[in-house]
Design a protein around this nucleic acid. Structure first.
Lengths: 215, 215
DNA sequence: CTCCTTTCGTTGCAAAAACAACAGACTTTC
DNA sequence: GAAAGTCTGTTGTTTTTGCAACGAAAGGAG
């Protein structure tokens, strides 16, 4: 049992006996690079944990255009939302990005009792955390203009830090990707906002100023 | 106990004894219209369930502009994501939209044993469901143009129904709001797509056609 | 210090979107 | 069945954005 699944947050507090029992019930499979692990549209009957390697979460549209939603690396979980929501057909496909070893299981495979309760609470924490992040991002992205998206995001950051001066964890390109806009257009808008005296910035350090009529 | 909290999905399978015990531990409070229920920035130490009336989830930016994220009505849950993710400061405020009666509780208040496990699984299901919907919406919204957003959304619908002919649950304005774009611009783009032979539609019934180079 | 790479701001231009306004089709209501 | 209201497509105009390209600034490596 060289994979040390205790490295995964979900199992970090299992006892040795619980780990042993869980590993007996769960399934481990190996995949070569670029194999399909879960086909698009299949029912979500298991949760996956990457033990070695890296997998891609992908979508494919009606006309065959593929796009990568995320990459999941060692000791990270995937498919848990589809599993827990009991959906009948996964809206994505999962593909090995390198040679991989994957652990598959369902909640019934988790040892009963205190262990399972703890596991569920952790899974809930992970899922809820993703939820908060998604909802937060959604709040900014749904604004119509780059200016509004920026002010919404920066405002939230200031609120979070409880300080009108703060540093963001993104460089320009990353911020543009996060807000789903063009980098140069973002830079342009930042320049305008600074010229208008709404805010000041220097690299990724920002200061929000006085009042404005923005949303 | 006139509120019949069994109407709430989370508690629908509690036994009478479990319900009684739970209600002893949980807290019920009444609010007049437009009172602040949870202040922005406060720690998320409880989950809320609306028993009577309706509440608003709101944000407020650095310059004081308010925006409504959601309205929660009777027997619906709110704040569960913040609670389960153990965040230290809620990024939203919650306000009574009408006179309301709210049930507040934390997980320790749920009777132990089988009951709690079932509750956690249900809560997980609800949270995961929101997660799937949010991620799904995000996939479409992050596309850069209205055309791409539309094709992404419609493509996903076709995939979901496993049929290139399908009906969507939105009218034009609602679809525009969902994709975070202007209604008339959306109509315009739909017209173009139809003229180009990419798809056909009639009200909210759509048919996707042949191939295209869109993403 | 110099070369190389990455990041950032800027510009011009073409494309796309927002906005406002209107007319026809369809619904609902009385 | 007429009137009022809603939903949808369309058009024209203005604003915003995406895109491509470039040069300056910053940071690292040798």
């Amino acid at each position: 049992m060289a994979e040390r699944i205790q490295n995964c947050f979900l199992f970090s507090e299992f006892t040795l006996e619980e780990l042993r029992q869980f590993r007996e019930n769960a399934e481990v499979k190996q995949f070569a690079k670029n194999q399909i692990i879960w086909q698009y549209g299949t029912p979500a009957k298991q949760i996956g944990v990457v033990l070695e390697g890296c997998v891609r979460i992908e979508t494919q549209d009606y006309w065959g255009n593929r796009s990568i939603l995320a990459k999941i690396s060692a000791f990270e979980v995937f498919g848990e939302a589809f599993y827990c929501a009991h959906i009948s057909a996964r809206p994505v496909q999962v593909c090995s990005d390198t040679d991989t070893k994957i652990l598959f299981f369902g909640i019934p495979e988790v040892p009963e009792g205190n262990c399972r309760t703890q596991f569920l609470e952790k899974l809930l924490q992970v899922t809820a955390g993703k939820n908060v992040m998604l909802a937060d991002k959604m709040r900014h992205i749904t604004k119509r203009t780059i200016r509004e998206k920026l002010l919404s995001y920066l405002s939230a950051q200031a609120g979070l830090r409880k300080d009108s001066r703060f540093t963001i964890p993104f460089n320009r390109q990353e911020l543009a990707d996060f807000l789903a806009v063009d980098r140069s257009a973002l830079s342009k808008e930042l320049g305008k906002l600074q010229a208008e005296g709404v805010l000041q910035f220097k690299k990724n350090h920002f200061t929000l100023l006085k009042s404005s009529e923005a949303d």
